[in-house]
């Protein structure tokens, strides 16, 4: 099994700042290493029996179906705000016609995957950390081991798999609703021509824009769920520890999305 995290010892004196920095580096490296190790175990768990389809379905419902309202609401308002903002900007040089293109392009390539990822990290990543964390502190994970069940396989595989599957699905709908939000603002509020607006929304899109957003989303799904599960799995220190893990899952998950987004964007285009 994976050894548990250990607490760092604090130091004093001249070396304290270096120690603090070293500790930070160690924690970062350890987090990175833990994630890689747990990912390895998760991938191994994927190919070991039994394969638990029902658990995956449960997670798909929890992450996807139950997260849908939040994600769609976010998408609609993002699209709407984007349309409003670009309109006021573009109006200054009479390019209002391109509001639709800007909204759809930025939704598909960037905003839908990232905002959906952030929402899911806040909603489901934290829930996973809390659930697995409280299982850890109430010895339920030990009970799993005692019942000859690999906890990583039992807990991580369905969640991580669900994350990878569900995020792109959510992003597809977020794309549609984001464009819809922009359309509503542009046509209803700003009086744009509905047909021209729709035409401009799609005229400059490439299928690659859609696919790259979905690939990003799958990567975010993996990161969010893996970090959520990892934080829960490594919970120490009772109820307070569960709280810490939950917070860390959201913070690290969101950071992972934003940082990886840059590199994914760089690799994908």
């Amino acid at each position: 099994m994976i050894p548990p995290r250990r607490e760092a010892v604090s130091g004093r004196g001249v070396m304290a700042p270096f120690e603090a920095f070293g500790r930070l580096a160690l924690v970062a490296l350890e987090f990175h290493g833990r994630c890689v190790a747990l990912l390895g175990l998760t991938i191994r768990g994927l190919f070991r029996r039994p394969f638990d389809g029902r658990a995956i379905a449960t997670q798909v419902v929890r992450v996807g179906v139950e997260g849908l309202p939040v994600v769609l609401l976010t998408a609609v308002f993002t699209g709407a705000v984007l349309a409003l903002q670009t309109y006021t900007g573009f109006q200054r040089f009479h390019a209002e016609a391109w509001v639709g293109s800007v909204v759809s392009l930025s939704m598909l390539r960037e905003l839908a995957p990232v905002l959906t990822g952030l929402m899911v990290a806040g909603r489901s990543g934290s829930a996973m950390a809390a659930e697995i964390g409280s299982m850890r502190v109430t010895e339920q994970i030990d009970a799993l081991v005692a019942l000859a069940t690999d906890p990583v396989q039992y807990l991580f595989v369905p969640r991580v798999l669900a994350g990878i599957i569900v995020l792109p699905m959510l992003v597809v709908l977020a794309n549609a609703f984001g464009i819809l939000g922009g359309y509503l603002v542009a046509v209803r509020l700003l009086g744009a021509n509905p047909v021209v607006y729709m035409e401009n929304s799609f005229q400059f899109l490439d299928l690659n824009d859609l696919w790259s957003g979905l690939i990003k989303a799958a990567a975010f799904g993996l990161l969010i769920t893996l970090i959520g599960c990892q934080q829960g799995f490594d919970t120490r220190g009772g109820a307070e520890g569960v709280g810490r893990s939950t917070t860390a899952a959201v913070v690290l998950g969101s950071l992972a999305i934003l940082v990886s987004d840059f590199f994914l964007t760089k690799v994908l285009f």
Binding site: E131, M135, T138, E139, Q140, D142, A143, V145, A146, L147, A148, T149, D150
Partner: peptide
């Protein structure tokens, strides 16, 4: 290891039942 574990039964301090 799992084979060995199946020969054991373990009860935990607070029961550690799966509350789901």
């Amino acid at each position: 290891r799992d084979e060995m574990r199946r020969r054991f039964g373990m009860s935990f301090q607070e029961g550690a039942l799966f509350d789901s």
